[in-house]
Design a protein around this nucleic acid. Structure first.
Length: 95
DNA sequence: TATCTATCTCGTCAGTAACG
DNA sequence: CGTTACTGACGAGATAGATA
């Protein structure tokens, strides 16, 4: 599992989703088919939401990495400047 | 302006890890 | 072991920019 992923189980049902009837109340093949369809639609809806959330998290993760790259590049630049200055100082001392 | 191409976005499927 | 959430891969449609 990627490091940016934190599992947080969701309990809320997506908007517009109606809970299926309890198993004991199903009888005819018609009802069974409807139940299967409902289950499939619910699964697709949840997966759709999950995919959106996953992509959002990934985007944020990438943005975070890009920020970190920028910070490190700046630090590197500063350190190079500092090293250069110290070298100059040292050279002039030894002359 | 019509067509082509590259890139982006979204939904779905399939596989996997984690949980109870 | 069954269920659930997460995510990589894929295909389809949308969009933007280039070219004749």
């Amino acid at each position: 599992m990627p490091a940016y992923q934190i599992r947080t189980p969701t309990t809320a049902l997506p908007q517009g989703v109606v809970m299926a009837a309890s198993p004991g109340t199903l009888h005819s093949p018609q009802q069974l088919a409807e139940e299967a369809t409902r289950k499939r639609e619910l699964r697709l809806m949840k997966n759709r939401e999950a995919a959106r959330e996953c992509r959002k998290k990934k985007k944020e993760y990438v943005k975070c990495l890009e920020n970190r790259v920028a910070v490190l590049e700046n630090q590197n630049k500063t350190l190079i400047e500092e090293l250069k200055a110290l070298k100059d100082l040292y050279c002039h001392k030894t002359e």
